[in-house]
Each structure stands twice: as structure tokens, then as C-alpha cells.
Simulated scan of single mutants.
Amino acid sequence: MPEPVAHRRSAKPTPRASGDEAGPRPGGGPGPSAGAVGTIRVASVPAGHVYVRHLSPPGGDHVVRLADPRPCGAPAGSRQWWPPVMLDADWVDEHAAAFDVFHLHFGFDAQSPSGLRALLDALRRNGKPLVYTVHDLVNPHHHDESEHRAQLDVLVPGADRLITLTPGAAEEITARWGRTALVLPHPHVVPPPGLIRPRPEHDTFMVGVHVKSLRANMDPLPVVRVLADTLSELPGAVLRVDCHPEIDDPASHFHAPGVLDELRGMDRGGRLRLSVHHYFDDDALWDYLIGLDVSVLPYRFGTHSGWLEACHDLGTTVVAPSCGFYAQQRPCLGYGHDRRGLDAASLREAVRTAYEERPAWRAGPADRLAERRRLAREHEALYADLL
């Protein structure tokens, strides 16, 4: 069953729950209203990621986000932002005059909890407020949750304002830390011209599973086996499985012995179409997604998904697992899949429903652009309230 889109609230400061204390307002004293503020300079970690870029309206506003500093070792002219230089407390001390608000989204995987405490200390020392958007309550790249939990135990209590993407994530934040997060939806991922791109016509019913480099939260083989069996019973249905070659490379961190062997065997047996390739660039990714009727997310833990948002932009139906809060992001079909295992019957039912009903849940281009403008206003008002 599809779930409703995340709540959209009016622009106002994040209210504090009982016990919701992060210390005094950096800089002290009440800030000006959004209408009275001039340019607001934001040190955003990161700034160049598509999620952050689309928090600004197409014509710009009063918010100016500092460009991502080039990490040590990154080639000149590179758009690489990781590991984020701004997370260093020394960077904050040296560049405090260049920004008004610090906004952390993601990219702190390699930071120790003590390093994050040093960052918060530097921000307070320089009178700079911290906004933290909680994208991930669990880290999809880590089997062991302990490090990410320790990082969140520093960031969530220490931030001056919290944002997250879904009501369910906000409820968990309140339950775990006694903090209240403002719920703001994910902006569009596909560029505006792609929002009006016609979907291609084809005779098959194409279901895709992209294994990528088999990050920790993926368990694709049980999902693929069920899909192959189910689609074999549906006339015209085809299963396409994509992955990156790292999973077959013994020298790679992502090496997963046996996974590609099984997928190749299923390909040879005509049960699926396997495509092994390096990372798609953006245009190739949009071509891939719009060519699918259904994209199945083979995750067993996680929180939110930009992939799901791109599918919504392009009109590709998503079959999302029960873990995390994917079903609260956008309309999609669901199936049971979490750390305890796969509910095969629910996956079969979801795929059959997609095949029989052919849902049309594509984002309206005007709605997506209006939503982007609302998000920009919400962020600008939140920043202004902190200053």
C-alpha cells in the first residue's frame, strides 16, 4: 500500500520538546526575522551535492552557501567534496568570519565522536549556530551501528536546529534524544528538463534491481531469487540486475565472493538480464531509471533514499522495503525486508500489484518546483531565526 508524502509544515523555528536543550543561542540575543535579514552565508557540508543545490530556488535567494573546499589530494577542478574540510575545528576557527550558519547534512562518516565534539566546541567558541539535517538514523554503509550512533549522540543533542525528511524519522529523533525536528521533504533530484521528459514506450514490463557496489545495507540475492521466480509467471516481464565490477575484485573493499557468480548463472539461465558496469554518470542514471517500470530497493536497513526521489521524478514505480522510512517519502509499494530477513510473499504481492495496476505516481514538474521554492523559504527562515 502506498504511503502519504511527508508532511509539509509552515516556515517557523523548530520547537523544542521537553528537555530539548542545546545551550544558549550562539551569538546571544534574538535574531532578525527572515524578512529583515540580508545575505545569509551558510557553511554547508556538503554544498555541491544535488540535495543541497536544490534547497536554493532556481533564481536564488538571500542564502549563499560556501563552495566545498577541495580536500587534500583531490585534483584541481574536481567536484569532489569528501572528506569534508569544513568538519575540521581548525577550519571553523580560521574561517569563522566567512559564514553565519553551519549546516551539516552528511559526510561525517570518518569523523570520530571526539572530532565532532571539537567541531561543536569551535562553532560555539565562534558564536556560529549549527543546523543538522538528519538524513540517516542508521548508516547504510556500515554493518556495525555503534560508531554512527555515537556520532549522532554528539550531533543531535548539540545542534541548534534539527531537520529531517519524514514524520517517522522525526518521531524516532524525539524518542531517542528528546529533540524535535522540523520535517521537510527531499527536493527533486532530476534536473528540471528531466521532469518533463516523456517516458519511453516498450513492450516489456521491466523490473530493475541495482546492486551498485553491494554496500552494507543491501541483501540482493534473496530479493533477486524471488523476483526471478515471480516475473517468470508474468507475460512480458523482464528482470534487469545491475552491479559494479568491484564486487568481483578480490582487491576491492566491496569484494563479495559468489554474488556475481550466482547472478551470472541466472543470466545464462535466462532468469534475468545482468549488466556489470562502472558508475553511471547522471545522464546515464536518468536513462536507466526512466527505462524501468519498477525499481526494487534491496535494502535491509536504512532511513531515506535519494534514489527513490529520482524514480518519483521520472515516473518509475518504487518497491521499497519495510525498514527505514522510505514509504513516507513518496507513494510507493512496500514489502517486508529488514535485518531479520525477507518476507518473500509480500515482495511477490508488491511486484504483482505493480504489474497489474501500473501505478502512475510521477511527480508533477510544477509541483516539484513549487516544493523547491517552499524548501528554500523554510531554510532561509530557519537560518534567519538563529541570527
Results as ranks from 00 to 15, higher is better:
59 G>D: 14
205 F>L: 03
321 P>D: 02
297 L>V: 02
88 D>A: 15
145 E>I: 03
314 L>C: 04
335 Y>S: 03
335 Y>V: 00
54 H>D: 07
33 S>P: 14
203 D>W: 04
266 M>A: 07
15 P>T: 03
186 H>Q: 10
352 R>H: 12
213 S>V: 01
26 P>K: 06
315 G>D: 05
6 A>H: 01
73 G>C: 05
8 R>L: 15
195 L>A: 06
116 L>D: 08
118 A>S: 15
134 V>E: 02
48 G>H: 13
270 G>Y: 08
229 D>P: 07
124 R>G: 14
364 G>V: 04
21 E>M: 09
387 L>P: 07
281 D>I: 11
67 A>W: 08
385 D>H: 11
27 G>V: 05
125 R>A: 12
35 G>P: 10
11 A>P: 15
108 F>C: 09
147 E>W: 01
92 V>H: 04
111 Q>E: 15
137 L>E: 03
175 A>R: 13
337 H>E: 00
35 G>N: 12
48 G>W: 10
198 P>S: 02
39 T>G: 04
210 H>P: 04
176 R>V: 07
351 V>C: 06
212 K>Y: 01
23 G>S: 09
128 K>Q: 06
152 L>K: 01
189 V>Y: 14
252 S>Y: 10
98 A>I: 06
275 S>L: 11
187 P>C: 10
87 L>N: 11
196 I>D: 12
94 E>S: 11
192 P>R: 03
110 A>E: 14
31 G>S: 05
237 A>L: 06
223 V>P: 00
18 S>R: 11
233 E>A: 15
141 H>D: 08
277 H>I: 01
367 D>S: 15
176 R>E: 10
59 G>S: 13
20 D>N: 08
328 Q>L: 09
128 K>W: 08
370 A>W: 06
206 M>I: 10
89 A>K: 12
138 V>L: 12
111 Q>S: 15
